[in-house]
Design a protein around this nucleic acid. Structure first.
Lengths: 218, 218
DNA sequence: TAGCACTTTCGTACAAAGTACGTTACCTTG
DNA sequence: CAAGGTAACGTACTTTGTACGAAAGTGCTA
């Protein structure tokens, strides 16, 4: 039971999903094929089918793996600190698994980690004193912002400060300069200046949202 | 030049993209294959390659088609009304083309409609009196919320009021009832009651965001 | 009208991918 | 060691994207 005759450890649903995440991280979701996955596992394509039902199940599974990596907020702590920590964690996790964002849209059968995650957020809001109705409001608002920000970040062709300028310029060059004056203004006068990092925008929006929600509590 | 001998109108990049959107709308992005697209167009698979470079170009193209359907805000009107109208339009468009949300994350070469759209939003914020820095903040915030909300809406396995209960119950039944107490509470005591419509949450969050941004203007 | 160049459509064919089906190797238990 | 379940795999078929080159259609000129 411990180890088969050949040196490789035995396959399992968990090892399959972990390897799938690694393949997707390395080459994007398009690089995740049954064959590339089998290769990563040191096995043959058909071997993975013993542990997962098919590719759809793998996609459902790795989305849940991603959710399992996000820090859960604690209902016992200060709700603003907890939710901020959870949001930062979610953003960081989604930055490491960009492919996951696009996947969240087609997956309609949440896994256990996903459900536990949602449950923890709801618990924190309820413990903070929000009514059921306000909890629904706040929950939709915070999550929309968090995932939407990650979605935008993933769509950007650059990553981090000082990488904006060259990319932005090459895009703008493709069009007549005068066609998008405000885009041009923001790009040349702001985005391209002094190490602008789109990622820093996250805190501004989150604070604004939490402040406004906080005001509705009193 | 007007019409070929056979009754079918001639192909064009525009007709190809329009048909691609229709196929994706009808069967999801997975149903969009070169062959299904050709069928929709009444042509043969290889014919579409004369008008578009390949499938990647089609995906880029239909994302831009989707953006072109979103109402542009006018920099001349009241900025809050304009941005609200634009956000509502974006949400509605993304509801009709759920597949587009997942596509926005892998597409890093924006088309003309996408750029014009962004330009119009920036113009509206600038005209409202926001500084470059605040415009960047507001822009990231509003768009993150809008697309994030659409992303969440697309991930929901139900659509509209009075369809929540049965689905939610079938999901919850798969797990021990006590495992997710707050999820259970929200589901049974709130979501399942009296025609709750997740879509109505959109206005709450958007108003909260616009109010807070407005306060920073004075 | 006949010929010609350009535009558009299509037929064939191959590589990559998902997976159904049945087989082989292995491991545990009696 | 025998038996039966567990795990891994080999083969082969279907679907998809698309390279390559030929065929059909279209408009222009002589």
């Amino acid at each position: 039971m411990v180890e088969p005759t050949n040196g490789r450890p035995r396959l399992s649903r968990e090892r399959v999903l972990t390897a799938a995440v690694e393949v997707a991280d390395a080459g994007g979701i398009g690089a995740l094929t049954i064959r590339s996955l089998a290769q990563e596992l040191g096995a043959k394509p058909m071997s993975v089918y013993y542990h997962v039902a098919g590719k759809e199940a793998i996609l459902d599974g790795i989305v849940d793996v991603v959710f399992s990596e996000i820090d859960l907020p604690s209902p016992d702590g200060d709700w603003r600190i907890e939710l901020r920590r959870r949001a930062a964690s979610a953003r960081q996790v989604l930055r490491q698994h960009r492919w996951a964002i696009g996947l969240m849209e087609s997956r309609t059968s949440p896994g256990p980690a996903t459900l536990r995650h949602h449950d923890a957020v709801l618990a924190t809001l309820r413990a903070a004193g929000f009514s059921l109705e306000m909890t629904a409001h706040a929950y939709a608002l915070i999550d929309s912002y968090t995932y939407g920000f990650a979605l935008q970040e993933a769509g950007l062709p650059f990553d981090g400060p000082d990488t904006v300028a060259p990319v932005a310029e090459s895009i703008m060059e493709q069009f007549t300069t005068g066609d998008y004056p405000h885009l041009a203004e923001m790009t040349t006068d702001f985005y391209s200046k002094s190490g602008y990092d789109f990622g820093d925008e996250f805190d501004f929006g989150l604070n604004l949202i939490l402040d406004a929600l906080s005001a509705s509590l009193t």
